[in-house]
Amino acid sequence: MLTTKQHELLCFVDERLKETGVSPSFEEMKEALGLKSKSGIHRLISALEERDFIRRLPNRARALEVLKLPEGGIVASAPSTVVSMAEARPAPAAAPTRELPIAANDIIEIPLHGRIAAGVPIEALEGQSSLSVPAALLGSGEHYALEVSGDSMIDAGILDGDYALIQRTETARNGEIVVALVHEEEATLKYVFKEDGNVRLDPANSAYEPQLYGPGEVRIQGKMAGLLRRYN
């Protein structure tokens, strides 16, 4: 038994494949189902995959194969029926072949602003570089990336050389990981806590001590939305 949203998504994808031969993008699926974020689409796709309604192909960007429909109809399983959101489905053998448009890749570019300390605060660098990020890692709003330097957040799974994905904001709740600008010149990545008008920045490593600042000494520049790690 599928939920209403699972049923709607599967039918939408199947209809789009029949109409254009190209699977819809995550943004198109999000808008069609009236969801607020793409993370909901990922959850629905995972649920459909677990129930054997669709299959995701490994090592291919957002490639989906529809295996069966909610009514129980089985879709023929053959290489020619496999359709990627980044690739077009081949036309049936009886019809003349034609080149189909390539769907937009679900990757976005965000600014990469130097290195940020996860130990002793260092000056945040403004650069002209950018970082390619899967859109699924980001929510709404404006984002940028910072390369992590130091080990004070290792217990939170944030390692030296990782890329912290930051959502721009000037507010944060207690316990969130934020980019905190100290004395308007140095930035650090820490847990934030507000206490009696003061701001405490906590590391995630027992080798470091919390940092306590008075009113006006710390300004929030964003909160952590995701993390990228390269293995090379």
Rank of each mutant, 00 (worst) to 15 (best):
L201Q: 10
E28K: 07
E50R: 15
S206V: 07
P210Q: 11
V66R: 01
L57Q: 13
R56E: 03
M29A: 02
E217V: 09
F53I: 04
L33V: 13
I45K: 14
M1H: 08
L112W: 02
I177L: 04
G127R: 05
V182E: 01
V83L: 03
I116Y: 04
A156C: 09
G197S: 13
V120C: 01
A225I: 14
P92E: 00
H42T: 15
L228F: 01
A156D: 11
L35I: 11
L227Q: 07
L10R: 03
I166N: 02
E71V: 14
K36W: 06
G21S: 11
P24S: 02
I54G: 01
P58A: 04
A32R: 08
G40H: 14
E99I: 10
G139H: 09
T81Y: 04
A164F: 08
E50H: 11
P79L: 10
N174K: 07
S140W: 04
E126F: 10
G161W: 14
A135V: 13
A93L: 12
L100C: 06
I116K: 11
V182C: 03
L9E: 02
L212I: 15
V22C: 12
E186V: 07
D196M: 11
A91K: 12
E185K: 13
G127C: 08
E176C: 01
E147W: 00
D151W: 09
K38N: 10
G150C: 06
A76T: 11
L48Q: 01
P111S: 04
E147H: 02
N59A: 14
K36E: 14
Q128R: 14
Y208T: 06
N198L: 13
S206N: 10
A32N: 02
P70M: 05
P134G: 06
C11K: 12
E186T: 10
Q167W: 00
G21L: 09
A104D: 06
C11G: 00
S132A: 08
R55D: 00
Y213M: 07
R16G: 01
A63P: 04
L100I: 10
L48R: 03
Y163F: 15
E109A: 13
R173D: 09
N174C: 05
N105Q: 07
V66E: 00
A61H: 08
T20A: 00
A156G: 06
I177G: 01
S130D: 03
S206C: 04
G226S: 09
E195T: 11
L212W: 09
R98E: 08
A164W: 09
D52F: 04
D202A: 14
A104M: 06
R56K: 15
K223T: 13
G40C: 12
I45A: 07
K5I: 03
T81D: 00
E186M: 14
Y191A: 05
Q221W: 15
G21K: 11
A187Y: 09
A93E: 08
S149C: 04
G216A: 08
D160H: 15
A172C: 02
R98S: 12
N105V: 07
F12A: 08
I116C: 07
D151K: 14
G114Y: 04
G127M: 10
S77D: 10
S129V: 11
E184Q: 13
F53E: 00
D202Y: 10
F26Q: 00
D155A: 13
P70L: 05
G139I: 15
C11T: 06
R60C: 09
Y208H: 14
P121T: 03
G119P: 02
K68A: 01
P79E: 10
G226P: 11
E15W: 00
T97D: 07
G34W: 03
H113S: 07
N198F: 15
